[in-house]
Write a protein that binds this DNA or RNA. Structure first.
Lengths: 204, 204, 204, 204
DNA sequence: GATGAATGAGACTTCATTCAT
DNA sequence: GATGAATGAAGTCTCATTCAT
């Protein structure tokens, strides 16, 4: 990364998650993050280019761990339905385990200006790559149509999961998120409409 | 709504769409909107509470026309698959017809702080209500499972459509958006996985 | 000038002379100038681009009045010796009449960075033009050598006068400056060395 | 002087000349001087009190060598006209030989705040003493008026020479400086006005 | 003597909003 | 209703300097 890291780097990231979650990105003063991290204001700038860079770096940091973890779990199953379900489930669990991070990624990260959005997208590529991999595997397995527009399918999956997550945060996490994963995964794979098959199955 | 409207109200809204699209919300100065609208800075505050209010009002204004138009078109078909397709198609067409508005709604509107997000959601309820109506009709028609979690289904549909639209804007509208509507509608209704297996299984 | 002027413009200039003289340019806070001028901090920026611009504009303002006044007085005599003497005398008197301005022009204005120096030089051209005019007139009158390097002569005159003025300010104006004008004018015109030779020549 | 000197002291001085000349005093970071000198930031403070002290010390260092050299050369001639000419010539040659130093002494050194200016003046005393010595010798030799105001004469000479030098630096050293020395020396000693005409005119 | 990571004070400027006209 | 000059709060980031090693 070419980035100077160390205990203070981590302390600042952790402090920023808390401060951003409590006050929102724009209302979070750098001096408050510094105080929360137990370092001087100037120290922040030894590790981060500016305030934006703290937000982006935090996202990078958390996202890379997150993606690695999901990759590992996904590889333990073969069915792509199961892979997708695990991915969504882990996504949701991660958010439930760290509510501050959930607020920051679902709300604060979005307040960024357009330039910053491109950086966020860059970081997201790791996660989006996971979805692509699942879809490609699905095609190889013959579960998905070889003509499937992967880019669009990926956007649908990501958009759906992200929207559910954002709603959960905005509703102040008043309900359990993880249990929704399996039905969401199902709706995405099988569609919202009922299959005529049920009748066939009923017959069987 | 107790809101003073008039030719200047509209002029300011139209000016704001242009200015926000060109510079982004945060970099758009109220004085620039005033100049673009051909009114004095202070005049803005005769029609809008503050800068945020311009953005929200613009969204309300455009959204209400938009929802009415969709409602009207949707009522001309009965199949809920067709209704969903029309809704997405019109959503996309609207964005393609007004690129400045597309930039503002897909990018700038998201940069708002958390409080403002709640107001945006309030305005969005009109659109989300359309989705709910389609889903409820679907259940009535027996096309959708009566046990379908409408709230989640609505989030999936909205999230998917919104994400596709945002990607299109961020890719600088380099491809046609409207033609994607029918396959997205399809993927949402029928799911990503192929529907042939059931038959095969039935045969087996 | 394309510059918005008015009573506040003048008030700010006057306030700045006082504040800069008292604290030095770098230690003068814009907020202090605003308070001294009886305007809000932000008002400063309706009239000046930035803090530097206040300093430069003040110099422009004072210098243009100053040059006009000298021009007028110079035109009342014909002898270039007298013209030079009047110029230096008025230069010195001006400094003695406004000690704060003297501090600012002789000391604070010099602390400027290199870019600013070029702007200062631009303003100085009015004054330097006066010297050139005197020199050219001297050549026309046959008092000065037609081969005189005007540029260098001008630099000598300006450098000498400016240095005497700066020394006077740095010595905290403990002696009268104006009375020095005539002997300085003399030294510059007749040189430092005694004029015994002419007598010898007259005798020969 | 109680000053720790050594190879690093010199390295820092030399580095500072380069860095100050390239970036200007205020834009020159201590860390950049350290890097250029090949020492750690903190090492600077083992040899210099602060950033200002680097600039002043550099000036002291260069000036003392400079004054000694001039003194030596001046003593080889007896005519005070020649002494003055040599002084100016060597002054100019020194600047032409070290353009970086020229920039620093003519431009950067002037950006100092008022307190620092007094220190600069202190260092300048060595050079000003040279001028005084020449003037006093001139009086002794009967070339200069015993009533000559030495302080003012010194200021005139220094101001003139310094202004010519500064102009040369600001014009980016586009012409040769040293050749100007003899005519400047002449103008200062003999004055700007022609000495012969009066007789001619008297005779005519 | 040498290092360099850490410190923390400090102030310019913007711009949404107001209100006297 | 319309104006636009005036307001004033607010916060990032730099960089000279220190000091534990």
């Amino acid at each position: 990364m070419g980035k100077k890291k160390g205990p203070k780097y981590d302390a600042i990231i952790d402090a920023a998650v808390i401060v951003f979650a409590q006050n929102g990105y724009h209302l979070s003063k750098v001096s408050k993050i510094a105080k929360q991290a137990g370092v001087a204001d100037g120290t922040i700038y030894l590790y981060f280019k500016n305030k934006e860079d703290i937000l982006i770096s935090m996202f990078e940091e958390k996202m890379s761990v997150f993606v690695d973890r999901i990759k590992h779990e996904i590889n333990r199953v073969t069915s792509i339905e199961k892979k997708l379900e695990i991915m969504i489930e882990m996504h949701f669990t991660q958010l439930e385990l760290d509510p501050d991070l959930a607020i920051v990624t679902q709300l604060e990260l979005r307040q960024s200006n357009t330039n910053m959005r491109y950086q966020v997208n860059e970081v997201l590529k790791g996660y989006l790559g996971l979805i692509d991999a699942i879809l490609e595997e699905g095609i190889r397995q013959g579960v998905l149509d070889p003509d499937l527009n992967i880019r669009i399918a990926r956007q649908i999956i990501f958009g759906a999961v992200d929207e559910v997550a954002t709603n959960w945060v905005m509703k102040e996490r008043k309900y359990a998120l993880t249990p929704l994963a399996s039905s969401i995964s199902d709706m995405l794979m099988k569609g919202l409409s009922m299959k005529t098959q049920p009748e066939a199955e009923t017959k069987g």
